[in-house]
């Protein structure tokens, strides 16, 4: 027990240290922006670790929940007069309710049937966002209100520029998300989720209510996706329906699997690498996507469990 606890704490300490110390090496404000994007993605992939890595259920439509979270922040302040921060929480609640409603029928499906059904949900959300132009602004997107927290912080003497503020806000959100997911991993619910991933029939016979637990994992991961979408909208002060699009869903599943689908720090590493790589590879100009694709294929061929778990195994093997 103490061993597991310390592993969780070690992971959190390393993540927190990386978030806190990285700015010391930033040559310009632009890097705060890249860091924030990594953290927003890191939050989303942590939710996918709960769904795919723990519970073993695929979703190719989670960007749909990011869309709900993003547009909650874009629309609720104007239409309902909600503070953007409350809109973010409201969006998360709405995503949870939607996930609960669609999860009940959808999660009876397995494997690629589930993949296609979730895909359909994501497409549905992005279609609604693009077509209901009167409300959402349509494919051209719309502006998002200022969160206002930065000026509040400045008033109490914490002066951050915009890029720094969002670096801190998204970094702390990602760390909180990691803490929650790691808590879940070693809890009774987390064990039951991982158990039904390995053997549904055995999980059932020890009393696990499989349908209920899958649904809980689905709702939890939807809330993660929604919060990440909200943060993206508030940070960019602008949002388009692409946030809910198929490509965004696939990108996040790719990050999760690339980094290590069963591992919270692994998936976050995947988010970091796949957010940074395209930036770094721009020097290769037209070969950028070619090299990116090649790297991804090679990692999956030679590091089947994902980047971090495979690296850890190799390190252990050498000892």
């Amino acid at each position: 027990m103490t061993m597991r606890l310390s592993r969780k704490h070690l992971t959190l300490i390393v993540l927190a240290a990386l978030v806190a110390l990285a700015p010391a090496f930033f040559p310009s404000n632009f890097y705060y922006r890249i860091g924030s994007l990594i953290f927003v993605n890191g939050l989303a992939v942590t939710g996918l670790v709960v769904l795919i890595g723990f519970a073993g259920q695929i979703s190719l439509g989670h960007a749909g929940f990011a869309g709900i979270g993003a547009y909650a922040c874009a629309l609720a302040p104007g239409y309902l007069g909600l503070h953007p921060g409350l809109a973010m929480l409201g969006g998360a609640g709405l995503s949870g309710v939607v996930a609960w409603l669609i999860g009940r029928p959808i999660l009876r499906l397995k494997g690629y049937y589930l993949a296609v059904a979730t895909l359909g949900f994501g497409i549905l959300v992005s279609m609604v966002l693009a077509n209901e132009a009167g409300i959402t602004g349509g494919p051209d997107g719309r502006e998002v209100a200022e969160l206002g927290l930065r000026s509040a912080l400045a008033a109490i003497g914490i002066g951050l520029n915009n890029a720094q503020f969002w670096y801190a806000a998204t970094g702390l959100s990602m760390l909180a998300g990691a803490w929650v997911a790691l808590n879940l991993h070693d809890s009774p619910s987390g064990r039951a989720l991982r158990a039904l991933h390995d053997s549904e029939v055995a999980a059932r016979t020890v009393g696990v209510d499989v349908a209920r637990l899958k649904l809980q994992a689905f709702v939890i991961s939807a809330v993660y996706a929604s919060l990440s979408g909200s943060l993206l909208a508030l940070m960019n002060r602008f949002i388009t329906p692409d946030v809910a699009g198929f490509l965004h869903s696939v990108e996040q599943v790719t990050m999760t699997v690339f980094g290590g689908v069963g591992s919270v720090p692994g998936a976050i590493l995947g988010a970091a690498v796949l957010t940074l790589l395209p930036q770094a590879l721009t020097v290769l100009q037209q070969y950028e996507n070619l090299i990116l694709g090649l790297i991804m294929m090679l990692v999956m061929i030679f590091m089947r469990d994902g980047l971090l778990p495979s690296l850890m195994r190799r390190l252990k093997g050498r000892e």
Partner: peptide, 9 residues
């Protein structure tokens, strides 16, 4: 088993 919220936090 218990409330999932307790497990998350």
């Amino acid at each position: 088993r218990g409330p999932v919220l307790g497990d998350l936090l």
